[in-house]
Nucleic acid binder design. Structure first.
Length: 336
DNA sequence: AAATCGGGGTG
DNA sequence: CACCCAGATTT
């Protein structure tokens, strides 16, 4: 098994794997790093356009490091997990100070936003380091390949499977990029969570879950995700006659960290208290799902006359300036 | 170990 | 609707 798996996967990747994505065909650690951060918990189709915009605006890590954080956040807006953007900027500055990216996974993992799996992806793609990535794809592919039936909700099981993953990497370091890409291509294209295409799998002959008829049961994960609920009222204050919007910047941590939004309130009474005389126009409520939260947003629109500030925090932003302000996805849709 | 942190794609 | 995605960080 340990000797047979990697050559089969590498050969399959070179012939049938993905090669045309914007971050493929390079070993530039800046480009690989940027793609890996964006791809954390985020699908390829979503990342593509963001990646191209980032690369066009910041062709080098130095230019990213020199940019204002607000501009990075504005470019990131809509992609989610905004601590990634903050860490991206901090990491770029650290790398610029170092004079370049470190060349080992261990050193890469010391940088902000680069965890153990991302560090190994960069090290494998750029520097041929013989260590395995361990993302969701790999957990699924290897749990099936090895019929690993421990519960991957626990750290013990994860460590055990990861150690097995490291034992499977190719003997030749030069094969690490194709191997690493192959693991992800296999997980994304064939060894999918539901209805995997075992008939097309290059390692079906080695797959122990398939031999045991247990592909559908693996990997095991008992961790139940339970979402809380929250309700908020959203004050859409529109200044007459120029249509400027009152926006507030979110705190540096928490939901939508660093982004700009309409003022949020826990109750409609709290919202009305800010604009005592105003007529509130109720707009259809918005259901917004976060990983740990079902959020029901109630937009209330009102007109505002004059230049005065309605709230102590925030500022008027004219429509022409909106693109420079990073807004969360539901607000982008609301304003569209 | 558990919680936090987005948004969209998928069956 | 639930589950997943080229996870990391904080508590």
């Amino acid at each position: 098994m340990n000797e047979d798996f990697a050559p089969l996967l590498v050969a399959w990747q070179r012939q049938h794997g993905r090669h045309g994505l914007p971050w493929h065909g390079t070993r530039d650690p800046y480009r690989v790093w940027l793609s890996e951060i964006m791809l954390q918990q985020t699908q390829v189709a979503t990342v593509r356009a963001y990646y191209l915009r980032f690369l066009a605006r910041f062709p080098t890590v130095g230019e990213l490091a020199a940019a204002p954080l607000d501009e990075v956040l504005a470019l990131w807006a809509g992609l989610g997990y905004y601590s990634r953007a903050r860490n991206l900027h901090a990491c770029a500055q650290a790398v610029a100070a170092l004079g370049g990216f470190p060349r080992t996974a261990a050193a890469l993992a010391e940088l902000p936003g680069i965890g153990p799996s991302t560090a190994r992806a960069i090290a494998a793609f750029c520097f041929d380091e013989r260590l395995s990535i361990f993302d969701g794809n790999v957990q699924r592919v290897l749990a099936r390949l090895l019929a690993f039936d421990e519960d991957l909700s626990g750290t013990r099981a994860v460590r055990a499977l990861w150690a097995q993953a490291d034992a499977l990497v190719p003997a030749r370091a030069a094969d690490m990029p194709a191997y690493t890409q192959g693991l992800m291509d296999l997980g994304a294209g064939l060894c999918t969570p539901r209805s995997p295409d075992c008939a097309a799998c290059p390692v079906a002959s080695l797959c122990q879950a398939r031999a045991q008829g247990r592909v559908g049961e693996l990997p095991r994960k008992t961790k139940k995700l339970k979402r809380g609920r929250r309700e908020s009222w959203w004050l859409w204050l529109r200044r007459e006659p120029d249509g400027a919007l009152w926006l507030q910047q979110r705190a540096a941590t928490g939901i939508w960290a660093g982004l700009w939004t309409l003022p949020l309130f826990d109750t409609e009474a709290d919202l009305q208290a800010v604009v005592p005389g105003a007529v509130l126009e109720p707009l259809p409520q918005i259901q917004h799902a976060l990983t740990h939260l079902d959020w029901c947003l109630h937009p209330r629109r009102a007109a505002w006359q004059g230049q005065a500030a309605p709230l102590p925090e925030g500022r008027w932003v004219a429509p022409a300036d909106w693109p420079a302000y990073g807004m969360p996805a539901p607000l982008q849709k609301l304003l569209a």
